[in-house]
Nucleic acid binder design. Structure first.
Lengths: 101, 101, 101, 101
DNA sequence: ACCCTCGAATGTTAAC
DNA sequence: GTTAACATTCGAGGGT
């Protein structure tokens, strides 16, 4: 009597479907994470310094992130300089900011 | 010529003041966070299960009403997946789910 | 003079190769993580409670043994705090706690 | 019968004590977090750009972290160069690394 | 008024 | 076993 069809059915199958899709994707994700681990192990096997390798990966990731970050901050500052647009000093600051890009 | 007083000066000192206040407060916050960590370490040192301790803290944070509400939804979903049939709470949830839909 | 072939070359190309493999895999992983997010968004779109859905996924991840073990400890702690007296599970936990200590 | 003294008592009072200490500290932490929020609100009130202010705070935090990070990576690389210590090219690389510090 | 993006914070997992 | 990085999850603030 606990699995009666009817109103509840659609909800149940909907939930089941979502849960299955998510669990499937998480399996794939885990599988790839394991692959990454294997690559590090292999690198270690040929004598590479794993920590240094991780540093390289991290640096390259950060470089991209930093680039985006710097641009975002610059945009924010340019916008914040709008506060000053009606003062002489502000005009100079805006010029400088524009040049610095 | 970039540090002359005037309009810019007030703005700069204002910003500086806010930054200092915030950084001071964040130091205090971090200090307390460290204290909390220390307490968990100490608890572990006397043989307590840290993960369970965290669970307790988390549970107490949810007030009773929220907890009941959230549990009801969770039970409904678990029932949809047929995962709930063998617990007393589950039986109740199954009833609720049937009625609520 | 820094790019002459020889000992250094093999090392460099080896490192490069590993870095590329890892970065490729990390891209795939991120892509799947994004897919998972999308599924949650879609679930929300049809009116499901995302937080509850996450709870379900988390529960199913713990295998039965772990779950029972962890629940037993949690119950013991809650009992110690007098928070468990009014649930059936709580009653059982109280018994266990008395016996286990 | 659920709060009998004896073996269980020490455990219960121990847990209770830890929970209370943690909850007390978390209250303090939350209080400070609220203070920080208030400062941002106040800054906004005098016309400052809150996003830019957050950027400043974040940048200053990162600068400190980056400094430490760079040093750590440099150390790793110097160590990794040990791999090369027995080749002529390696010797040159070690020299360069030492000079670059 | 609601969504949604962003940042903060926690929990988990891997490396040493 | 401990420490630190990493990913994930939660909440708050802003925009539409």
């Amino acid at each position: 009597m606990s699995d009666q069809p009817g109103v509840g059915h659609n909800l149940a199958s909907q939930i089941k479907s979502f849960v299955e899709r998510i669990e499937r994707l998480e399996e794939e994700k885990k599988s790839i994470a394991d692959d990454i681990k294997d690559v590090y192990v292999e690198a270690k096997g040929v004598g590479l310094d794993v920590k240094a390798l991780r540093d390289v990966i991290r640096l390259r990731k950060q470089d991209a992130a930093d680039r985006a970050e710097r641009q975002a901050i610059l945009d924010t500052y340019l916008h914040a300089l709008g506060m000053l647009a009606d003062t002489p000093l502000g005009q100079a600051a805006i010029k400088r900011a524009g040049a610095a890009t």
